[in-house]
């Protein structure tokens, strides 16, 4: 019995560790989902007509993303995309792109 509860405790401990074991590169991974359109690391091909995200100040892109999400800012596709991410994820993404100099 004692051994069993120790085992349960260990399992709980490790599984909660496992649940929290986020990739330290999560922001990078999330930002990579935007690269198909906005270019690798937010640097689009010159002349492709799509806005760069690299080096844009965090609060600026975050505000635009929040406005896309709430419907305040119109767009062909960004309102539909922004709604798919949590606010926390958008923060990570905006910070990652801001750091791309």
């Amino acid at each position: 019995m004692k051994r069993l509860s120790a085992l349960v405790a260990l399992t709980l401990l490790t599984s909660s560790l496992f649940a929290q074991a986020a990739d330290p590169e999560r922001a990078r991974n999330l930002a990579a989902t935007c690269a198909n359109c906005h270019g690798t690391d937010g640097r689009p091909v010159a002349g492709s007509g799509i806005d760069p995200l690299a080096g844009i100040e965090k609060r600026h892109s975050l505000q635009k993303l929040a406005d896309f999400k709430s419907g305040q800012r119109p767009g062909t596709i960004m309102p539909q995309i922004a709604k798919g991410y949590t606010d926390e994820q958008l923060e990570l993404i905006a910070a990652y792109f801001a750091a791309q100099k």
């Binding site: 690269a35 198909n36 906005h38 270019g39 091909v45 002349g47 492709s48 007509g49 799509i50 062909t76």
Partner: peptide
């Protein structure tokens, strides 16, 4: 036509990606 231009930009950027 706007989305036609964006689609062309999508292709350029995903190919580069």
């Amino acid at each position: 036509e706007l989305e036609g231009r964006i689609a062309a930009g999508w292709a350029q950027n995903i190919w580069a990606d």
